[in-house]
Amino acid sequence: MTRKQFFLVFMIPTFIILFFLAFYPLLNAFYYSLQNWDLRSSRPIRFVGLKNYIQLFTDARFLNSLRISLLWSVITVGFSVFFGAGLLAPLINDNAKGSFRTICLFIFIIPALLPRVGAAYMWRLMYSSSIGIINYFLSFFGIGPIGFLENPSYALYSVAAIDIWQWSFLIAALTIILLQDIPKEIIEAGSLDGAKRWQLYRFIIFPVIVPPFLSIFFIKMMESLRSFDFIFVLTAGGPGVATETLDMYAYWQGIGSAGRVSYASSMSIVMLVITIILITIVWRGLVRWHE
């Protein structure tokens, strides 16, 4: 089999599937966004042009949710990557060997495997200011009770903490797996030069795993933009709209209470455009930084 045959045999089926699965829903969503389709009413569906899009930018809740989504993504991606890859992975990689290492890896994956909705309910109980265990421990230090989920200023961070808890361990596990593939010689060469541990990581080990790691980073970013379930269970977007991300708001407008499919679709299209722009910027920036 020549290169060309190999290329065609594998690329064509895959891309046919992807184009169908991606463009059909996407084009549909765009099509809906130009209409006034509302699940709640049986009036005939009409085209309204860009009306939904114009309405979006006068909708204070939409603008608020944009801000919350951005904040949420920055916090959860930043901290999970920092804790996971920056602190936990080197710690385990250097200090745990053999089966202890496998056990660590294994345990790190567990938080991500929990059914998220169920786990979120449990966190809700643990966060409770009157009967929760976290405030119970804090009371030993004379702190609290703290209204983790009910104070508009902390709620977003409290929910984000759970997401970070779940993801930083997973990211750590994946980073450790990536680190295993680094040839021993590179590390040994670095150690001989008398480099400090963190320098070794900063200048020798991390650069090697940066490209695969960036891929994970992007996926985590995608996932952050859609971590709907935790917020839905823990605060339902509240207090008020303090934790209402774009995803929550689009759900509420589209399939949730309001049933305005077209409006929610236009919101999603705007979200898509913003994501593409942001990711392109981040992508270019990272590529340049890496070079």
Binding site: E150, P152, G237, G238, G240, A258
Partner: peptide
């Protein structure tokens, strides 16, 4: 739902 959001805002602010 909208009224609920406004009320929750009031309640949490008052409580804090």
């Amino acid at each position: 739902d909208y009224l609920g959001i406004k009320l929750e805002e009031l309640f949490t602010k008052a409580y804090a």
